[in-house]
Each structure stands twice: as structure tokens, then as C-alpha cells.
Simulated assay, not measured.
Amino acid sequence: MEAELQVANLDHLGLVASVIDELGLVELTDEILPGHAQNCISSGRVVKAMLLNCFGFLSAPLYLFSEYFASKPVAHLLGAGIEAGHLNDDRLGRVLDALFESGTTMFF
């Protein structure tokens, strides 16, 4: 049985994702913003996706996030089991609301 070779273009997003991981931003965000059982993706991973989008030289509006990440290796950048469809505008909006409620000055 031959292994299937898959090629994905990370561009510079792999470096940005590595720096975010090195800083522990995902874990810090998950500590501050509690998750919910119905969430497919944690708040920290959503914030990481938003940062990757900002550093992607093309800032997609919330309703186009899924399309922006459709051509990216999402599982490699954000974590195993995460798909572009998990980054919908409802989930992103809920995380932004939670960030606002927690106090963005204290958070950042």
C-alpha cells in the first residue's frame, strides 16, 4: 500500500502559527474564555485563526473566514480535527463578544 503524498502551501502562516504556539496564546485564551460543550473549536483556536487571517495579507470579513481557510492546511495550522467550516461567523462573533465581556484591555 502506497502512502498518498499531500502538498499544502503554508506560506508564512506556519511561522506565525509557531510564534502563537510558542507564546501560549491559545492556552491563555482558553483559560480566560471558558468553552462550551457544543463548540467544535476552542476560543483560543478561534483567536489564533483570526490572527492568522490578519497576517495573511488579506483580511477576510467574518462571513468569509471559512472560504479564506478552505485553501489552507487548517489542521496543521490550528490543530487536528479542525476544519475550515468550524470557523463560521457565528463562532467568531461569539468569541469576539466573550473577549469584549472579559475586558480586552486586561486580556491583551
Rank of each mutant, 00 (worst) to 15 (best):
L92Q: 07
A8R: 10
G14V: 10
K72F: 00
L64S: 09
D90C: 11
K48S: 07
G35F: 05
G93W: 03
D90F: 12
M50R: 03
H86G: 00
N39E: 14
F55D: 05
L96I: 11
D11H: 12
S102Y: 07
G24M: 09
E67D: 15
L25Y: 10
L15D: 09
D89V: 08
V26R: 07
L13C: 03
G79Y: 07
D21I: 02
F100D: 10
V26L: 13
L77S: 00
L58F: 05
L58S: 15
A60V: 03
Q38K: 12
E2D: 15
T29M: 15
N9M: 11
L92Y: 03
A60L: 08
F55I: 08
L33H: 02
Y63V: 07
D21H: 02
L25Q: 13
I41M: 13
D21L: 01
R45H: 07
I20Y: 08
L33P: 02
L64T: 02
D97S: 13
S42K: 05
D11P: 06
F57H: 12
H76A: 09
N39P: 00
Y68H: 14
T29Y: 09
R94W: 05
V46A: 04
R94T: 06
R94Y: 11
G85Q: 05
L33I: 09
L5I: 15
F108M: 13
S102I: 00
L33M: 10
V7E: 11
H36G: 04
I32A: 11
I41T: 05
Q38T: 09
N39Y: 11
N53D: 10
V74G: 00
R94V: 13
G24H: 02
D90K: 06
A49W: 01
V16E: 01
M50H: 03
C54F: 11
H12D: 10
V74Q: 03
N88P: 12
T105H: 13
E2V: 12
A98I: 05
L99S: 12
L15K: 03
S43D: 12
Y68F: 08
V19L: 10
F65S: 05
A37H: 11
L99W: 06
A98E: 08
L15F: 08
F65D: 03
L15N: 12
T105K: 14
E22Q: 12
F65R: 01
T29P: 08
V47H: 08
K72S: 01
L28R: 10
G56C: 01
P61A: 02
D30S: 05
A60H: 04
A84T: 00
A49Y: 01
D21A: 07
F100I: 11
A70G: 00
L15V: 15
C40H: 06
G79S: 09
A75G: 08
A3L: 11
E67C: 07
L15T: 15
L5M: 14
H36N: 14
L92I: 15
D11T: 15
D30I: 10
S18M: 10
M106H: 14
G35E: 05
V74D: 02
P73V: 01
L25H: 10
N88F: 06
G103F: 07
G35C: 07
F108D: 13
F65I: 05
G79D: 03
H12F: 04
G56A: 03
S59Q: 13
E31I: 00
P73D: 01
F65E: 00
S66G: 07
Q38V: 09
E4A: 11
L33S: 00
N53V: 07
